[in-house]
Design a protein around this nucleic acid. Structure first.
Length: 436
RNA sequence: GUGGCUGUGGCGCAGUUGGUAGCGCUCCUGAUUGUGGCUCAGGUGGUCGUGGGUUCGAGUCCCAUCAGUCACCCCA
């Protein structure tokens, strides 16, 4: 055990995992941009008050999971910052600060953000995790909701994930939400003693959150609470129906769930969550989102309707791994250059320069002496071709070209080298994204 | 924040009733001073998570602590 370890709840993604990790990230960016979302980068930490005003106290994220940031001379209560626990608040802050409300609406933004929550770590739950956060601002239509969901759907299916499940609900307008909250209080207050401690606290602070309690007694008590749907006005019901109809048209399967509330306070109308089925543990949620029409206004901007989503990229990666899917090839060099002795190393360095300029990837172990150990390195590097240079080659202006997989070797004059390498590497590599 | 289980070389593991810390893989060297994979031989690497305690003696027993993991809570 090393003396110094990575901080609790953080993890390293090592070189072997990087091809998959980068593919997960790149596909996220690609899908978002393909669907009109433009990239934005915002700071890793923001004013504490930003999160206080957006996420809302009474949520776990604010009450017990925030990483606070202070300067060495910060007076209490002044200049307080926090590492972001989620991406939306910072992006909305930037939208307001840079006057994006006077851009043509809607404004569609996305960002890949690392988020921090001071949770107790567990499989699939880290104190630092990465999300793609997509935000569709300035459009109140049901179509915007569907577009955001469609984007997340396309992303997840593009990665080859099956066993996906979309659950969806509507929370109605803030007024309808409040009315419903009061109804919950009215029904549950007389039997408050039968609820869990958490639910008792929530009954006063945030009654809707009781809905997704997993406790059997809580669920039993909730049976006598009418569904939220029965409190919706005609407009809200019609809006919800329209969202569902749009999902049907894109053939996105979903499951309605009256109890889906989500942990952040700013949602209204549509709320949704993506689950991965199979590992029915608690960490089956890949992410989710919803409409947050009040948020821009709450943060001091002009009243602006908006909808967004966030997906946890570590969980997406783990879901791919769990499916055993998506072979991502290890990154290996095209060419490995070997020099037999000191004088050959100079020529080897020229050759390296030449083939790098041609765009091939190169590795070498010129720090090692001896052809044998260099060839060993060449083999382990996974290179397609080894180029070997020694006294004989120097005197004949040539190199030995060896195909490592077969062991075939031939002597090539330097002037033919590039053409010959093109032949072989052109055949050997048929991927789209390599440098050739 | 609550509860269960687990911490032994880089990785995966063994270690009997307390009595000199081991194996496999990896890594390094050599057989093979102009050619890798296979094979064989040798070698590096551990104050047994950390700190106390019991004992003549602790990887092993006790306590604490840290970390991992699982389940709550909640989320991504």
């Amino acid at each position: 055990m090393a003396e110094i370890q990575s901080p609790r709840g953080t993890r390293d993604i090592l070189p072997d995992e990087q091809p998959l990790w980068q593919m997960v990230r790149d596909t996220a960016s690609y899908t978002a941009e393909q669907m009109g979302f433009r990239p934005i980068t915002v700071p890793t930490y923001e004013s504490l008050s930003l999160f206080r005003r957006s996420i809302g106290s009474g949520t776990d994220v604010m009450d017990k999971e925030l990483f606070l940031v202070r300067g060495p001379h910060t007076e209490p209560g002044k200049e307080e910052y926090a590492l972001r626990p989620e991406g939306t608040a910072g992006i909305v802050r930037a939208y307001i600060e840079h006057g994006m409300s006077s851009l043509p609406q809607p404004v569609k933004l996305y960002s890949i953000v690392n988020n921090f929550r001071y949770d107790r770590p567990q499989k699939g739950r880290y104190r630092e995790h990465t999300q793609i956060s997509i935000e569709y601002l300035g459009d109140s239509s049901a179509f915007a909701d569907a577009w955001v969901i469609y984007c997340t759907y396309r992303y997840l299916t593009e990665l080859g994930l099956n066993n996906l499940k979309l659950i969806i609900n509507t929370l109605g307008t803030p007024a309808e939400r409040n009315t419903y909250g009061e109804k919950i209080q009215e029904v549950l207050r007389p039997i408050i003693d039968s609820l869990t401690g958490d639910s008792q606290t929530r009954l006063e602070k945030n009654p809707l959150r009781i809905l997704d309690s997993k406790d059997a007694n809580d669920q039993e008590a909730l049976a006598s609470v009418p569904p939220l749907r029965s409190f919706l006005g005609e407009e809200s019901s019609a809006r919800y129906a329209e969202v569902l109809a749009l999902l049907d048209q894109w053939e996105i399967p979903y499951e309605q769930n009256d109890r889906l509330v989500r942990g952040l306070d700013y949602y209204n109308h549509t709320a949704f969550e993506w689950l991965i089925q199979g590992n029915e543990g608690q960490q089956s949620s890949l992410g989710g989102g919803g409409r947050y029409d009040g948020l821009v206004g709450q943060l001091g901007g002009p009243a602006t309707p908006a909808v967004g989503a966030g997906l946890g990229l570590e969980r997406v990666m783990e879901a791919i791994q769990a499916q055993g899917g998506e072979e991502v090839e290890k990154i290996t060099p095209d060419i490995f250059v070997v020099a037999a002795d000191e004088t050959s190393k100079k020529k080897a360095m020229e050759i390296i320069n030449l083939v790098l300029n041609e765009g091939w990837s190169v590795d070498t172990a010129l720090g090692k002496d001896g052809i044998s150990s260099q060839m060993k390195s060449a083999n382990r590097s996974g290179a397609t071709i080894a180029l070997i240079i020694g006294e004989q080659e120097l005197s004949t202006q040539s190199v030995q070209m060896k195909i490592l997989a077969t062991g075939d070797q031939e002597n090539i004059t330097e002037s033919d080298l590039v053409a010959k390498l093109s032949d072989i590497l052109g055949q050997a590599c048929d991927c789209d994204n390599c440098s050739k």
